[in-house]
Simulated scan of single mutants.
Amino acid sequence: MIIDCHCHAGKGDGFTGPWDTTAPLERYLARASEAGITRTVVFSAFHSDYEAANREVARIVAKHEGRLIGFAFVNPKSDVGNVRRLVGEAVERYGFRGIKVHQHDGRITREVCEVARSFGIPILYDVMGDVTILDLLAPEYPEVNFIIPHLGSFADDYRAQVSLIDKLPRLPNVYTDTSGVRRFDLLEAAVTRAGPSKVLFGSDGPWLHPGIELAKIRALGLPPADERLIAGGNLLRLIERKT
Results as ranks from 00 to 15, higher is better:
Y141R: 03
P223T: 01
T176I: 10
R218N: 10
R97T: 07
R193D: 11
P24H: 07
V41Y: 00
K216Y: 02
A53T: 04
T176P: 10
V57P: 01
L29Y: 02
S44V: 07
G120I: 02
A225F: 06
P172V: 04
H64C: 10
V127F: 00
K242Q: 14
A52K: 15
G120N: 07
G66I: 02
L208S: 10
E34Q: 15
E114T: 08
E188N: 06
L214W: 07
R27N: 14
L220T: 07
I230G: 02
V87N: 05
L164G: 04
H64N: 15
L151Q: 06
R84H: 13
H8Q: 15
V74D: 04
H150N: 06
A58F: 02
Q103L: 12
V91P: 05
L200T: 08
I37E: 05
V61D: 03
S118N: 09
A215M: 12
N75T: 06
G98T: 05
S197G: 15
I133Y: 01
A194F: 08
E65R: 15
L136S: 13
V181I: 15
E227V: 09
N75E: 09
K100Y: 09
Y141G: 03
P169E: 02
V174F: 03
W207V: 06
L220D: 04
E240M: 11
L25S: 11
E56K: 07
G12N: 01
I148Q: 08
D49W: 00
A9W: 01
R182C: 10
